[in-house]
Design a protein around this nucleic acid. Structure first.
Lengths: 249, 249
DNA sequence: GTCTATAAATGGATAGAC
DNA sequence: GTCTATCCATTTATAGAC
């Protein structure tokens, strides 16, 4: 019956805990997720959970860390390819939306922590911050590459923050209307206008209707995200670590 | 000693519960806030709390409802005054930022509910939705007035949603960096560009540096919001119901 | 309307056999 | 590494005197 290598049964359990724990915490928030819920959903007894992670807090930190590394591994290099600003911008927006659609758990973990500043342990707070900082750094570098802002870091920073704000604001909206998608068309117009407003040459990109391309990719991505529940069951096999980021968190 | 009218002692207690409950729930999220915490912070025994509100959920609903009516009462009429688009836009942005700065609790209550869709009771879900819808409607009407979009409701809707997304995204950012402010300058540029992109005449507003005015008001508003704790103690007297929205939520 | 006291359930976390 | 069983604190919610 138990044909599992028996060697990595521990690793599989660990993953299962992280899967169900991450799913539940992203859905209900940290505080509203109990160990017994994770136990029931994963089939493992609470003591095993405590054996793997020393505390509930430890689970949260581990879940968040895994979500972060998975997302970062899936993010394309911040050196955005493309002949002109318009092309690079479209590529960038597609990447952003892609990440947004494929990794909803990460965002919800950040939002729904329910475990705010004061409550959070030092480790959890550090993880949360690291997650956010990594995203911001990626966005900054990407935007810098898109608009050629090597010598204007403040502008790159503003555009990156603006992008992330629209994205997280959309995540909040999705909180209420689950099928909300990132409005890359509007975001594109806004970014171009912001860049131009700062005197950055934007070439022919101004009010192009290029988001059409991004829209096509968007719809494809939506199909790849089946509800929110599907991810619970499929434990990512150990063999291909950072590969199964497709539907997972 | 007890010189209180004794008649409205109940009302005062009710308000105190809503004050501390709202404060705690916005800080820690719904799940992480216990009745005993509210009891300790308000000085009232748990049984009194249960006498006023039948359940923890009831407190949340009442808190949210009060926050909503307070915010809506404080919001200026959606008929934005001003000679041209630029002026009206500045007025609108100032109003948005004002609301954003003065009513942080409401936003945090929506964000930090930790009590997502499924968990929420029907009443709570309805309240949350009503809060959000009211904000969206106000933004839509205001934007419509600013850009003269009576005959283009879809555009007004898009601009309104974009505005709210930037605002809520900023609220998320503030979650991590408490002194984050709404970037009205960038939002202004974005809104003008979006309107123009849809063929809406924007007059002389394009890339005006008018946000200077908004910036001045912003700094003033920041001073008006002393941390987050100050609001706990001051129960809004019954006499002036929707008047004390200044620092309260 | 407010208080003390407590019921009843569930939470996080541990012990120790296997 | 996993399981059963359990401790103990805390939680929501109620009873009943005042």
């Amino acid at each position: 019956m138990t044909e599992v290598p028996a060697l990595d049964r521990g690793a599989r359990s660990r993953d299962a805990i992280l899967d169900t724990g991450g799913e539940l915490m992203s859905r209900h928030g940290y505080a509203a997720t109990s160990i017994s819920m994770i136990s029931a959903a994963s089939g493992l007894p609470t003591s095993s959970i405590y054996w793997h992670f020393r505390s509930k807090d430890g689970i949260y930190v581990a879940v968040l860390e895994r979500a972060r590394t998975a997302l970062l591994a899936a993010l394309p290099p911040s050196e955005v390819p493309g002949a002109d600003v318009g092309q690079r911008l479209d590529t960038f927006l597609t990447e952003v939306e892609d990440a947004f659609q494929r990794h909803p758990r990460g965002v919800r973990l950040l939002l729904g922590l329910g475990m705010v500043q004061q409550d959070a342990s030092a480790a959890a707070a550090a993880e949360v911050r690291q997650y956010r900082d990594a995203l911001l750094a990626w966005a900054r570098d990407s935007v810098s590459s898109v608009f050629g802002l090597r010598d204007r870091p403040e502008v790159a920073d503003e555009l990156a923050r603006f992008t992330l704000r629209v994205a997280s604001g959309t995540a909040v909206a999705r909180w209420f209307e689950p099928d909300t998608v990132l409005d890359t068309g509007a975001l594109r117009v806004a970014l171009v206008a912001l860049a131009a407003h700062h005197g950055v040459p934007v070439g022919d990109a101004p009010v192009g209707d290029a988001p059409d391309r991004a829209t096509a990719v968007r719809d494809a991505a939506v199909e790849g995200a089946p509800g929110e529940d599907a991810a619970v069951g499929d434990a990512p096999g150990e063999g291909a670590p950072s590969r199964h980021v497709t539907t997972g968190e």
